[in-house]
Design a protein around this nucleic acid. Structure first.
Lengths: 120, 120, 120, 120
DNA sequence: GTGGTCTAGACCACA
DNA sequence: GTGGTCTAGACCACA
């Protein structure tokens, strides 16, 4: 469920964070569902608890989970998180369009490619 | 011509690399035009020569410049680089579309946003 | 009567303690009125009895309740507690003023804001 | 310059963070001034480098410092930070007023106390 | 030299 | 049992 790639340039804690964000956003982890304890996940992934801890701290700071002391960490509902995430994707799309324009690539060209892929 | 932002989280060598890539792709630096020597650019930007060295090594590895021993570093022509770069942008666009779909965002929605921005 | 918010960063025992302090200070729980038994409140709030126990211990230590062995826990009267609590609030206000001054914020500025809010 | 109190209930990294925030806000550490390296401060305070690291990470996330990789950490100018901090103090003042009102303490009473202190 | 990440392992607060 | 903080020490990227 949480694949870790040690060869990946991104730090492990970030890979864990990203994975959980996706699982929560897609609703695979439901609202208020408990996620694995720091210790358990650390054992399961053969990773140091401190690293998992850091990933969870990041998730909490970004609003994806909440911590109940002495009980564990719980997912925030996707419905609360999706609007901001959609906006983030549009923001990245905008950025990409800007970069495309810098080398004279038109938006029509990009759109036509996207329309093409859709049919795949 | 090469703005360095110390507040930027990206390492300096990467900022230098990105900047040169853009200048070359947009044709501002022409094919076979000489770019500043490591030493000169380091002085001009008040940056450690090692950092510029690393940026140039990166540019060479990525095919944006070529080195002539004893003469200096020279830009590759934009016309040779653009096709691959266009493909890279499309690849990133594809990746973004995939991420959007994962949270149930349709391609139509993205396209309509892009069309909207165009009119701005 | 005792709302528990698991999303709240504060530990549960502290939320319970704070709530009781307020209920007693405002006179909603009268002097010498019996408060729920540890066991009952734990069941009612679906919380570990240890947690309630700790909250009550805290309340007793701070002088808000007293325990009669074999009978239960009883509230101290608001009239006995209010003077000290007022003093505590003034103390915190003083602290805040000190911090404000450290960044060159005048007391007049703070007072004018307070006067403004009053009219809301 | 950075006093650490091991008896303090607040974690060490937070004490370090708070201290630097104040030094920067008061302009004692000037804009773009280098703050001690993680390692040096760790030695000076006899604290583990990881703890200092965490404090600095916090300061960066909160916008008080910026990191230049390989060079060190540098303070952001007080003039950029003060407006938000003033707002934070007013927010805390508002919160305190609310708590005061809950026990029937009037704003006039609080203001009169503040005016009194001023003359000290 | 400077910060960033990670492991190993201890101790504490909370439930 | 669960998360939070901290120490000790290693290794890497960047300048």
């Amino acid at each position: 469920m949480i694949p870790i790639d040690l060869m990946d340039a991104r730090p492990i804690y970030e890979q864990v964070t990203e994975r959980f964000k996706l699982l929560i956003l897609r609703g695979i982890i439901k609202a208020d569902e408990k996620i694995p304890s720091v210790r358990n996940l650390a054992v399961e992934l053969s990773i140091n608890p401190n690293t998992i801890q850091r990933a969870y701290a990041e998730l909490e700071k970004q609003g994806y989970i909440y911590t109940v002391k002495g009980k564990g960490n719980f997912a925030v509902g996707a419905e609360k998180l999706l609007p901001a995430y959609r906006e983030e994707i549009l923001q990245r799309l905008r950025e990409l369009c800007k970069q495309a324009e810098e080398i004279g690539m038109t938006r029509e060209e990009m759109i036509s490619h996207m329309a093409e892929w859709r049919s795949l």
